[in-house]
Computed example of a mutant assay.
Amino acid sequence: MDWLERMNNALDYIENHLDEELDYKKIAQVAFCSEYHFSRMFSAISGISLSEYIRRRRLTLAAFEIQKSDIRIIDLAMKYGYDSADSFSRAFQKTLGLKPSDARNKGVQLKAFPRISFQISIKGDTEMEYRIENIDFELRIIGKSKLVKTGRAFKTIPTLWNSAKKDGFMQKLIDMSWENPKCTLESLLGVCGNEAAITEDEFAYFMGVRYDGEPPSDMETLIIPPSTWAVFPNIVEAWKRLYSEWVPTSGYELANLPCIECYYGPKHKPRHELWVPVIPK
């Protein structure tokens, strides 16, 4: 069973259990991968978080039921996992643009969010450059973490670094990096999430540097065990193509560790890289 079939089987499972409490671990098991990586792959390929997709699909089905039957709003709320009619109504209006009661009216215009299916577009004219790096020691990264909305990560993360440059935090990290060069990860680092599953609409983005000394009192410490990494130039492009093009055909599985965005100094080529933790299949 290939990667594409496993992902679509997981989507089938979601679709068949939208009116039940969905277990994210079970969804990932259907796809034969961890919660962490199923959620990350889903978000990267679809552009929305897994939880947001499930919410949109449930509300779309609820809208169909409202138009086709006289089911009570409270019963519909309970069916699709809401604690009250009020919370259901707020979510319904925010997502579909009108109140559930108004959706009963004939001729009213509603939004519908169709189910997703994954396909791979084969493009032989655009290669993906990468290399494999082995870091055989524990990575000790110091810095600060910020919460990032999953659906806005590509816009939010550059803003975080711009703010860090303005308030001096970036320069502080630069001054601490390269003090004791130990590997090719001597750069500004953006660690995406952690070992917990990214199933919510936001995740922790850790901005820091590899550092072996005593961290300043205003910084946190993140430890990443020895690992093997697939390294790609051009972070934005790598994120877009990683799960849909490289992973399915690489002979590697993703390790249950966070990906790391590396931003190098002015004379380094490439200027930035995406480090992805992997293990051989």
Rank of each mutant, 00 (worst) to 15 (best):
M41T: 11
F32Y: 12
E214P: 05
L98N: 00
I120F: 09
L139K: 03
Y264F: 15
T199I: 15
Y82I: 07
I141Q: 03
I223Y: 14
W229H: 02
Q29A: 08
A28V: 04
T156N: 07
W275F: 12
L222I: 02
L242H: 11
F118W: 03
Q93A: 13
A153N: 08
A62E: 01
H17M: 05
E237D: 14
I279M: 11
L98V: 01
H37M: 08
A112R: 09
A230W: 00
D86E: 13
K155P: 02
T199K: 09
W161Q: 11
Y252P: 01
S217G: 10
I73N: 02
N8D: 06
V247G: 01
D175I: 11
W229S: 01
A204H: 10
E127I: 14
P158T: 00
E253W: 08
I66E: 00
E20P: 04
K240S: 13
V209G: 02
M7E: 08
C183G: 10
Y36A: 10
L188I: 12
G251E: 03
Q119T: 13
Y211E: 02
A62V: 04
R6H: 06
D86L: 09
L147Y: 10
N180I: 06
N105S: 09
I135P: 02
E5Q: 11
E220C: 05
S121V: 14
I116Y: 12
M176I: 07
Y80I: 02
A230F: 03
R131W: 06
R271Q: 10
S46M: 10
R115H: 12
I116F: 11
P270E: 02
T60S: 15
R40D: 12
R40L: 13
Y53I: 06
S51A: 11
L185M: 15
S227N: 11
S89V: 06
Q67R: 15
I122C: 09
A28E: 02
C183Y: 08
G168F: 01
K155E: 13
P233A: 06
L139P: 00
M78Y: 11
K267N: 12
R72N: 06
N162T: 13
D70P: 03
S51L: 07
A153F: 12
L76C: 05
E214C: 07
E200H: 07
G47M: 06
D125Q: 14
E35I: 05
D175R: 10
Y264H: 09
D2E: 14
N234V: 03
I73L: 08
P280M: 06
I27H: 03
E5K: 14
T60G: 04
S34M: 04
E202R: 12
V231D: 03
L139H: 00
V276R: 00
Y24S: 10
A31G: 03
I142M: 07
K123E: 14
L59W: 01
V30F: 00
M1C: 08
V108H: 04
Y80L: 01
Y24Q: 09
Q119R: 14
P181Y: 05
D102H: 12
H37W: 15
L59R: 03
S187V: 00
Y252E: 04
F92M: 13
N256S: 09
L11W: 01
I157A: 05
W3S: 08
R271F: 08
I66Q: 01
V108K: 08
F232A: 05
G151T: 06
